[in-house]
Design a protein around this nucleic acid. Structure first.
Lengths: 198, 198
DNA sequence: CAAAAATTTCACTATTGCTAAATTCAATGT
DNA sequence: ACATTGAATTTAGCAATAGTGAAATTTTTG
């Protein structure tokens, strides 16, 4: 319990200094001085300095003012820290076949396990195959993809589309959606999700 | 100015109540009472109630405690609200050619503008073409892709890989990376980034 | 090197996050 | 219908610190 508490505490501290460091990175990327950011955000120079160096923790109100001034979504501040990449390649013959929900659809996971932010999947749907009769969604994130061959039917928020080879799509995952093979030959597509779902 | 200030103020208030509402949603989804969450998070029942109803704004410290207790990444609280999708399809003939940095590379944007979380790009690199001699990175996010034809050279965090048709990759964008055509014929690939960069 | 610009430090106060207890509300059992 | 229990909300108040503005220090520029 005590060791566990200690671990959590360490984690917190790292996360906090990351927010400040990211804010500074973003500010410097935009070539702003603290004074300029202070003017844009309506906060004081001293506070911004202290926040960036992790000396104080900004309220959400202040944080919003800063991220608005930096033209940056607030969520970017809370992304996981970068770590060295390994096992980032999946060879064609090493793809993992995924559990098949509806029949007439083959899904292969093309992503390594080590990356949690994005995932790439190869899907082949036989004629008549579909993700299901009912649209579904995911709580957060986004999806996109492109058609390699064949025709895909796609429904998003009640609107239906037919896509052919070379067409592409992107939508937020909260929107209700479903998809199916829209031709009389199999459709082969690349389907990408963020964050990783599988 | 006055009307503009007012608009910003309204936006802030909406965002704040969204955080609380999302926390409640998440808590109910996990079938926790306020008391149980209080115990898990080490915060008081009264505070949690007030946060969920937007009566008070939690410090980042408290917010971290709550999100840890709810087993939820902090960033989820700051996602944009879902909105109806429109213009989510890009037809093959409507792709936009992108500004070409290095020579011998063609990039086409396959994503609609309306989705900011993910972006899909078709890249064709002629033999000898490269993203540049120096690895680069992006402050946040992730990238993935797959090879349609040809061979791609990819360097991530100092490690080099050669990928052929059907192979795929994924890595966090903070890692230094560069890529090039690794064969004597053009390489054709799908490149996906989250969040959107272009 | 001097001056200007940028950042950090400092002392202090206004603000409110947060608590514990009281109250209210909702559900259940007799 | 009433009593009890559990869950959520409200209340009063204080300890902590977010945030300020000015001074000091550091860095950059010419």
């Amino acid at each position: 319990m005590s060791a566990e508490t200690k671990g959590v505490s360490d984690l917190k501290e790292k996360s906090e200094s990351l927010v400040g460091a990211r804010l500074r990175m973003r500010r410097l990327a935009r070539r702003l001085t603290l004074q300029e950011l202070a003017e844009k955000s309506g906060l004081s120079v001293g506070l911004l300095s202290q926040i960036e160096r992790g000396m104080t923790t900004p309220s959400l109100r202040s944080l919003r003012q800063i991220s608005t001034a930096l033209e940056m979504p607030l969520g970017w501040l809370f992304e996981p820290a970068p770590h060295p990449s390994d096992d980032l390649i999946v060879r064609a013959e090493n793809r993992r076949k995924m559990d098949l929900g509806p029949g007439a659809m083959v899904k292969e996971l093309m992503s390594p396990d080590s990356v949690l932010d994005i995932q790439i999947i190869r899907i082949v749907i036989q004629p008549g195959g579909t993700s299901g009769d009912k649209p579904y969604n995911n709580p957060i994130g986004a999806k996109c993809g492109t058609i390699i061959s064949g025709q895909l039917g796609l429904e998003v928020s009640g609107k239906e589309y037919v896509l052919k080879a070379g067409d592409s799509f992107a939508f937020r995952a909260e929107n209700m959606h479903r998809f199916w093979c829209a031709g009389d030959e199999p459709v082969d597509l690349i389907w990408v999700v963020t964050p990783a779902l599988y």
